[in-house]
Amino acid sequence: MIHPVRAVRAVPRRTWLRYRFVFLALAPIMALFFYLRVLPTGQAIVMSFFKWELIKPAEQFLGFDNYINLLKDENFRLAFFNTTIFAVATTILSVLLALLLATLIARLVGGRIGAGIELLYFAPVLVSVVPVTLGWREIFNYQHGILNSLLAGIGIGPQPWLSDPTMTLVAVIILSVWKQLGYNMIILLVGMRAIPRLYQEAAAVDGASAWQQFRHITLPLLAPVTLFVIVITTISSYNVFTQVYVLASDVQGAPGKLVRVIVYDIFENGFRFFKMGYAAAEAVYLFLIVIVLTIIQFRFLRGSRV
């Protein structure tokens, strides 16, 4: 086991001096990162131990009461369940589909056509979530949505995408996979193109099939990039909010069932019910969930690397 402090101490003075420009260049952004990200996170952890209303800070020290009450809170449990289903489905689907697309583009399409296809898939990443979600709300419309019309074309009856609790979750997953796919695909494609062709050519000479080349050369060499894509997708999936908020917002005229996710629940507790301490405890749970999952992913994928 390597001790980080001892490891830092072991770095020779001349190495520190050689890299001082790097540290100096990083200092402003690290200071900003500390002020804008680390400090608020620390404050949230402190708040989580108090009865802390938005306009009445630090009213009463509660110890772990907020954490214990959250475990009994039906809304939090539902939000945790929905978010986990969403995150798992979105990560698996968007990474697998991106891998498939990246492989097809890398192997079969090149030049301007390839670039055009890449742009097409990447376009959703460039568009703001709110207008995109409003567009998808029309696509999911039960009565006149395109999706139900397409389903009718293959003999499937209309689906209540926005009113049935399960279908609404499926709808949010579809929308999010569509939005995330292009980003994942580009990152994986860059990773694939960085693999020297020499390996595949050598394997081909040895008689390896396309699948064998992909399985034993591309996938292992792509593992660090795949790990990055999985971690980023998992983190962003656990932080899902805008899609569910917009899909169910202003639904007085249109059918729309809100999918309760953790960030929505935090938002509701903090900014609607004014219970900032309670919401902060929920945010700490989310933080722990994401960090644990990230560590698991690192260990698992590192272990599987060749």
Partner: peptide
């Protein structure tokens, strides 16, 4: 050294996770 690299990688990952759990600047 590999240990130094691991330490830096760990700091980067923790930073990434903390950052991701903070209020998003892009989502937007």
């Amino acid at each position: 050294s590999p240990g130094w690299k691991r330490t830096l990688a760990l700091v980067a990952v923790v930073g990434l996770v903390i950052g991701a759990c903070g209020p998003s600047a892009t989502t937007a």
